[in-house]
Design a protein around this nucleic acid. Sequence first.
DNA 1: ATTACTATTTCCCGAGTAA
DNA 2: TTTACTCGGGAAATAGTAA
Lengths: 245, 245
Amino acid sequence: MIQYNGVMNLVNLKEKLLIFLAQNGAFTKSLSMSTSMIAQYLGTSQQSASRILIQLEQNGYIEKMTVGKTTLIRLTNKGLDELRNLYTVLKSIFEKPMEIVLEGRVFSGLGEGFYYISLPQYFEQIKERVGFVPYPGTLNIQLLSKDSLENRMLLEKIADIPIDGFSNGQRTYGGAKCIKALFNGEQEAAIIFVERSHYGKDVIEVIAPVYLRGKYGLRDGDKVFLKVALKNTTKNDSIITAEAK
Amino acid sequence: MIQYNGVMNLVNLKEKLLIFLAQNGAFTKSLSMSTSMIAQYLGTSQQSASRILIQLEQNGYIEKMTVGKTTLIRLTNKGLDELRNLYTVLKSIFEKPMEIVLEGRVFSGLGEGFYYISLPQYFEQIKERVGFVPYPGTLNIQLLSKDSLENRMLLEKIADIPIDGFSNGQRTYGGAKCIKALFNGEQEAAIIFVERSHYGKDVIEVIAPVYLRGKYGLRDGDKVFLKVALKNTTKNDSIITAEAK
DNA sequence: ATTACTATTTCCCGAGTAA
DNA sequence: TTTACTCGGGAAATAGTAA
């Protein structure tokens, strides 16, 4: 007798028992297990284990067979399907690519974006690693909602394209991290998280292969959004975030 | 507002609600939904939806935020982890390769196995498709338990190596299906399900690249078993079966 | 040892309803 | 409309115990 995961706090006893049986292979073979053993593994009383076995059998989820002095238990098709349906639903949640949206308003920065992106050391890295020739400049976006702020924190962790800092003898230039995104849901772009940023955590800077203000006729205060596609949410990082309204 | 699967009969409301929220992406963004909408999707009352929201928040599975006249809801890390844990457990059940065991006793047949396996039309197909040079003969096994009988039915459906029938002008020879198995858990072998078998559904015939009776010193009545490894159990075929004791 | 009954408590659900 | 309270019926959990 192996396994059983005590990590499922909200799962009721019936479902727990089905899972426990499935974990022990009760769909390929009948298992011989006492109600008190089951109770121990499920963290409940022997009486409850007994009652639930009876109910599950009445509802066709399991089959019990008394052979001599031991009781053999196995899942029925219906019982296994119940678990399989649940599995399918959860799989569709966790295995589907996830989209994170940041929304905010355009604002004018100090114009430094142009200077930094134009530096060949940064320019070439962006071209190489991000995969497009950046328009020299960044679009500053002030995030609006609590959800967007939390998503920003998440994306800063996840950002997978490093831009290395460097020194030219006179001064050092800090590093940054990028993650690709779709500007307004369509235009190829990237969010750049600068190490030594002048802005707070409520701001993102966006680079793109085009002049975004021009292409979209943007003026300060205009609402824009960025979509970032993540692979999936199965990994146990916290993907707790939010979207602006 | 989309989805929700009404296929989870044994799942309680709390878990259903978490799933419903997750299906609607409430881990990347806050959702605005009324208790009566939730109730409708979950198939419960507005009162229950309200109560469960309160309880889930008290226990840290969700966060509620009243903004103006609408309530925003989202899963917390804890809430998403609860689902993720459940998903992980179910995944380990359904995605792990499954092993089916048939157990029974050796018995002597009519000696036809030798004749049929020796026919070059069968012999060559077995060599080609099953992947070994068959010893000319089959080992007959009388299955013992109800579990093994059901497993036999399952395997006959699953058997994936077809052996075609043929005609030599005088008479026709029926087809068969094979599935690879490990005899006594170690010896390469295959179970052959013959179309026009003389035996009942309580018997299997085994072929192998060696003389099994010789290698294992088998006499009629000796207990033997066969293990068949299946890919996984996610497909919605009934994998309800059993193993002999 | 085992299973499963009865009795008691505890918890859940939903109708009614207030705010 | 909305959320969420009270409260009654009933289901679920368990202690005690029989078989």
